[in-house]
Design a protein around this nucleic acid. Structure first.
Lengths: 271, 271
DNA sequence: CGGGAACTTGAGCTCTGTCAAAGCTGGTGG
DNA sequence: CCACCAGCTTTGACAGAGCTCAAGTTCCCG
């Protein structure tokens, strides 16, 4: 149970990127031909996992970065009292594991949401390769920065948004990521459970269900189990941008916003 | 107003690190003597700002990383409807600006909370120096990773914690950071307003006030405006770790936690 | 001193969490 | 092939944490 990443899974031989369907969407897309062989050499494993199995657990020594090849993965932290906060969902082409660099151990758990395959890259080899390839160096930093930016947006969501707005944002976010890897942006299958969504958005499962039901009744989505069809994207978009259900959504710029009111206090200082 | 970082502030000549009081706590501490001159050369400015002035605004072109030398800074994103989410507070020695790398522009605003001085480093020079100095390379990655980790913890806080728990966590976090730079861990001055705290913790100003008042009444802290004295650290610590005010806080391990119950579903799969 | 922020405190209401229970669904074993 | 079961999902009832609105009070800066 505590035996690290290995689980009961079989480790497969390392295939090359040429046969990978997400090659053009993952880190590999940012590597110059000149360094491509060495890049592939930094990938030391391709792991296939079944639903529910761990890629790593919080506290395990850091060493690898992970890129989803197929399927989907979640990362989550668990608090001392057992609450789970899902910190990210990862689709094909997306990279995770960056949170482990600082302390030298992963700070979250990574779990397969469905059967999936994941490439493992040696972080040390990657950054030493990055010392030769400025392009890869920048590419890696972009990934890290994006991860910060994503969590930053997520903080905004958690801090200031209603349950409906969170859900709308979540669905639209998934839609655009599916689109990016060639799937439909309006019809898709959720790889995660309602509980996972709840733990990601910081709400209860019941609220997740209720909001989805409400969306369906309002004709914004259709849903059958984990199949989702976005029907009224505009409405979702509008919802995702409003803090809460404001009675009068005036056109942008018409009124002074909460923050501009507040920042007046700053603007007034020392001018 | 829209004229980038310059504000009305005067740009000062670049002092060296030797006279800096936080030298041993900032990035400079991780640079080998061999590369120190080049490191100092990557610092291209030392800027002094008065309260309320911007170091950068969301959308401005990325180029620099920032390290606080004295004073305090907040970073914040503003949603379309004007809600402000504070994404971080930065004390002397702490680094910020990493969120701009990905898109090539800063994704947040950085604002001085009080008169402060900040070192500006050229990101390009830093990472090209990192291509020579493996130690700096690692140091930079640790900073980025820590930033991800911090936001990850913050997500947990926002998703699963009561107002009291958030506040306790916030105060304790500040305390340990003050301690790290040589200030008292129990008596300190908050550099930010109640509103900033509210926007950071995802709650209303009123709730911030009420929680602080409650803490004072319960003898956990003493407070006069922005002066804070932690009186009962144990109590705060206990609060910060509990999800909400559970009726029966059984000893750890005594009961099955929420997440272990849930993850059973996973554990059962494919075993 | 005077005025405007910033901070507090109170009252009422609403969103969302909790508790409970009943449908579903997909996998398993006979 | 079917019945059963565990876990996932949905729905309802209810309560409470925290938000909003409103009105002081204190503090800071000019």
């Amino acid at each position: 149970m505590t035996t690290s990443c290995i689980d009961n899974e079989k480790t497969h031989s390392v295939h090359d990127c040429n046969h990978c369907s997400v090659r053009s969407h993952c880190l590999a897309a940012g590597v110059d031909g000149e360094h491509f062989d060495e890049f592939e050499a930094s990938r030391f494993d391709l792991r296939v996992l079944r639903k529910g199995h761990h890629l790593f657990r919080a506290g395990e020594p850091f060493g690898a970065l992970f890129i989803v090849r197929s399927g989907a993965v979640k990362t989550a932290v668990v608090s001392q009292d057992g609450e789970e906060q899902v910190t990210g969902f990862y689709l094909p082409g997306e990279i995770f594991g960056l949170d482990g660099i600082d302390s030298g151990e992963y700070s979250s758990n990574a779990i397969a949401l469905e059967t999936c395959s994941v490439c493992l890259y040696s972080f040390d080899k990657l950054i030493s390769l990055a010392q030769k390839s400025a392009r890869l160096q920048r590419q890696l930093w972009q990934q890290a920065s994006r991860e910060i930016g994503t969590r930053q947006k997520m903080l905004m969501t958690m801090g200031h948004r209603s349950a409906e707005a969170r859900m709308a944002e979540f669905l639209l976010g998934l839609a655009s990521r599916f689109k990016a890897i060639g799937y439909s942006a309006t019809n898709f299958h959720l790889p995660m459970s309602r509980q996972d969504i709840a733990d990601y958005l910081g709400m209860s499962v019941e609220t997740v269900c209720r909001v989805l039901t409400r969306f369906q009744k309002q004709g914004r989505i259709q849903r059958a189990q984990r199949e989702i069809k976005l029907v009224n994207v505009e409405a979702l978009l509008a919802l995702s941008m409003s803090a809460s259900d404001l009675p009068d959504p005036l056109p942008l710029g018409t009124r002074q916003t909460a923050s501009s009111q507040r920042s007046n206090s700053y603007a007034a200082v020392g001018r």
